[in-house]
């Protein structure tokens, strides 16, 4: 496994996304509108909005996060993956690069959606450091699992619906941890058990991705 290739590969993934602008121009506005519509559906009950705001944020991140890992610059260009394989780039390195770029983009999505949630739902802003750690853990887990699910469903016609179907149930520990860290901060409870749960889920998902990368790409070219 040649680790020196990792950085240029991640940079290439991010540059391709920057040019296409799919996440910035489509996914983020769509996710923000989801937060807005949910608030309208709940109504003008300010205490209720305050209480459900963080849960709503993580639900939207989870649902729209799958689309970040399915973005056209990754799923729409299998030839690039084939070229990299023919060039002898280790499938594990390719998988890590795709998962890492998805994680970076997901962090970007979360960074935009948090202020939107604060404006619309006005949740209590306590325990921000623990919540930031939880956000990073969610992004890592969601990025890795989304990439793994995208590989599992590569070149299937129902991919866009299968990936969220795989990702949504399996990310339950991450979402649960993120919501509980926020709720715990309100009641001055320790965030560590939940952060540990999210970290454990991340390690499991990343390990599964690393172990499956070669098998998944076997015979792909």
């Amino acid at each position: 496994m040649n680790g020196s290739l990792l950085r240029p590969l991640i940079r290439a993934e991010l540059r391709a996304e920057l040019r296409a602008g799919e996440v910035v121009m489509t996914t983020i506005p769509f996710a923000a509108s989801g937060l807005l519509v949910a608030a309208i559906a709940i109504g003008a009950d300010t205490p209720l909005l305050r209480r459900v705001g963080p849960g709503m944020l993580w639900t939207i991140v989870l649902l729209f996060g799958s689309f970040v890992t399915l973005r056209r610059t990754v799923s729409g260009e299998p030839t690039r993956q084939e070229v990299l394989t023919l060039l002898g780039v280790d499938p594990v390195i390719q998988w890590v690069a795709r998962a890492a770029s998805s994680t970076v983009l997901l962090l970007g999505v979360i960074a935009v959606l948090v202020p939107v949630t604060v404006v619309i739902y006005d949740p209590p802003l306590t325990g921000l450091a623990a919540q930031a750690v939880a956000a990073v853990l969610v992004a890592v887990g969601l990025g890795a699992l989304g990439t793994l699910a995208a590989d599992l469903t590569a070149s299937t016609r129902t991919r866009s619906s299968l990936v969220p179907l795989i990702v949504t149930p399996l990310t339950l520990p991450l979402i649960l941890a993120a919501v509980q860290v926020q709720e715990g901060a309100v009641y001055a409870a320790s965030p560590w058990p939940w952060l540990l749960l999210a970290a454990l889920a991340d390690v499991t998902i990343v390990l599964a991705g690393l172990l499956a990368a070669r098998t998944l790409q076997e015979g792909a070219v």
Binding site: T156, L162, L165, P169, L172, A212, A220
Partner: peptide, 28 residues
């Protein structure tokens, strides 16, 4: 959630034509 993930398993199998690729991915 367990029910949904195994439904996705069946969905993934349905979408892949090549028997070897289908078997490998669904095993993972």
């Amino acid at each position: 959630l367990l029910f949904l993930v195994y439904l996705a398993y069946l969905g993934v199998r349905r979408g892949i034509v090549d028997p070897d690729v289908r078997a490998r991915r669904s095993a993972i």
